[in-house]
Design a protein around this nucleic acid. Structure first.
Lengths: 228, 228
DNA sequence: CGGGATATTGACTCTTATCAATGCCCGTGG
DNA sequence: CCACGGGCATTGATAAGAGTCAATATCCCG
């Protein structure tokens, strides 16, 4: 059975975590049908690379995605982590400027970009949503700019923990699916500095490290103060 | 005479630098007419502040605008400089998250945001342009993130000069309308470091400082190499 | 011509990066 | 079941880059 899937549905679709949905099929206005079956990427698998053509946008069903940019000498900046429900992969022109990789095993649903923007009848609603998503992304990136440009290591790590807590739903236990190296490249630090700042936050009683990848936030007020 | 002005015209309108155009009047589909006469802001005048409601989007006719975010203790991050032809002021929700100020005397044209997005008939074209503009801004901000997060002072200043050169049209003479402090807050540095890096670039023969606000790029290849 | 803002330069400090050693966790295979 | 191994994380010692504080210098603008 062919179902016409709109961006609204893509945007509104909240996956049932852990359970696999019945496969949906997409039929675009250009009559090219493709399977909308969730695609699975294993840990560290590349979803797309820099300079690749930007044909699809994606929504995270489960797992985590990092988007990153690499300098010739290996320095790396992570632009964002995408969590379940997040949409990513919109580009202003034909070619990617960031790559995207799965941080852990990740399920995505993909939509063909061309088919979305050429649908005249619904383009208003489509575009409005895309615009909203993109503006939110821009705002997030601008906040990140302030973080990296003007805050010290302790403030960055505290802000990161609070941000992760806010996105995960649980208010005091934060799961960190990504290694220290990824956090460092997201915050413009080294992995050693991230580790040291976590140790420091633990020392002052703001957090507790249940394991390397699981942090308990003990003192939200103090953390918020430290994050400025 | 009332003229229906579309975003396309706003976007496509290239001001004749230095000359003042005949006043245009805007009439929106909601029948609220407002003057589209270019508004002039003097040096350091605030165009809008953080937390203000986001009612208008702007296009720079002449001058330069900086958008910035301030921390409680006075640290500042400049998110972007807007030059003639640039459009700014789009926000994902009702309230501003960055302020905007004129760097030098600046002429702007303003369009009421609500009237643009509620025009159903042309919303497709409008939104498509807004989306394009926003995605370009996002890309620019992401590039800035890499710059600030992973490049050293010399690389940042070299990249800034090349960026300014690229935007100004002149390939080897760069006018810097903004003070060192603004450049520093844009690059996540201090004004002293910016000054030192310029001195360093001059010392190695990559640039020449005709005055503090006017730089001649002597060796594009070397600068590009230094910017990575 | 003078004065205030802006810019440069210098001396020193401090944060964070770098290099290196050790520790921990977890999966795998004997 | 336990020992081994490999990735990841922590911790330490040191260095380098950029920040801070302070003293001129320069440039506009009146």
């Amino acid at each position: 059975m062919l179902t016409q899937i709109t961006l609204s549905q893509l945007s509104g679709f909240q996956p049932a975590l852990g359970r696999s949905e019945a496969p949906a099929r997409l039929r675009t206005s250009t009559n090219k049908a493709f399977a909308g079956i969730p695609i699975t990427f294993s840990r560290n698998a590349e979803i797309y690379g820099e300079e690749e053509s930007a044909n699809y946008i994606y929504k995270v069903l489960s797992g985590v995605v990092r988007s990153c940019k690499l300098l010739p000498d290996g320095r790396r900046q992570i632009g964002a982590f995408y969590m379940p429900g997040d949409i990513f992969g919109l580009e202003p022109d034909e070619v990617r400027h960031f790559s995207a990789e799965a941080v852990i095993q990740t399920e995505l649903i993909a939509l063909e970009w061309e088919s979305l923007i050429t649908v005249d009848e619904h383009s208003g609603a489509f575009l409005s949503e895309l615009l909203q998503i993109t503006m939110k992304g821009l705002r997030r990136t601008q906040a990140q700019l302030l973080l990296i440009g003007r805050k010290n290591a302790r403030e960055r790590v505290a802000a990161f923990l609070l941000d992760m807590a806010g996105r995960s739903g649980h208010k005091d236990i934060v799961e960190l699916p990504m290694p220290r190296h990824d956090i460092a490249d997201y915050l413009g630090l080294t992995l050693e500095t991230v580790s040291r700042m976590l140790a420091e936050l633990r020392a002052i009683g703001a957090i507790e490290l249940e394991s390397a990848r699981r942090v308990r936030l003990l003192d939200l007020a103090q953390l918020t103060e430290l994050a400025r």
